[in-house]
């Protein structure tokens, strides 16, 4: 059962708010302090991506973040209204070439992003053990979860 549901306009300024809310709820749910930086970064990546996707496909559509706490897991789901980037369902960090990414470039055209599409998802996959991405007619769902150890009713590690 969702405990906190946040819907926000697809604007970069709101991503910080989403991170702060997720962090507060994770702490309250009993996610170990050692994992909170990971929660903050992963939620930030998922929300930044969703803001970008909605901005490209449907700027008026909101991003939805659902935070739930059940079966000793804290789960975050971020939903946008656009398609998944090609190849991003199974992000592969090893496929990224750091040397190639940072090849000299005078950068005349600022519209070209400095990192490939799907990079944020790749970061989440490198960070979070329990992570999945799915796409349906409504959009893309990014789901990730962490163990709850300190909350009331939480399991011992």
């Amino acid at each position: 059962m969702p405990v906190v549901d946040v819907t926000f306009s697809a604007l970069p300024a709101h991503v910080r708010t989403a991170r702060l809310v997720a962090l507060a709820v994770a702490r309250r749910a009993g996610v170990n302090d050692d994992l909170l930086d990971e929660v903050r970064l992963a939620v930030g990546e998922a929300c930044s991506r969703a803001v970008g996707v909605n901005g490209d496909h449907s700027p008026g559509s909101a991003v939805r973040m659902t935070l739930s706490d059940e079966q000793a897991r804290f789960t975050v789901e971020v939903v946008d209204v656009g398609p998944l980037e090609a190849g991003a369902a199974e992000p592969d960090l090893d496929a990224l070439s750091p040397e190639q990414l940072s090849a000299p470039d005078a950068g005349g055209n600022d519209v070209v992003p400095d990192l490939p599409p799907g990079f944020g998802l790749a970061v989440i996959s490198g960070l979070v053990e329990e992570f999945s991405v799915s796409s349906d007619g409504d959009g893309t769902h990014v789901r990730m979860s962490w163990p709850v150890t300190g909350g009331v009713g939480g399991t011992e590690t």
Binding site: R19, R40, L41, G44, E45, S48, L101, S102, A103, P104, D105, A106, G107, P113, D114, L115, F119, G120, V123
Partner: peptide, 21 residues
Amino acid sequence: DFLDSTGLGVLVGGLKRVRAH
């Protein structure tokens, strides 16, 4: 106190530009 992949992208972009010189 916080850096995400967007920030990383900016640093990579900076690196590309200085490397061009």
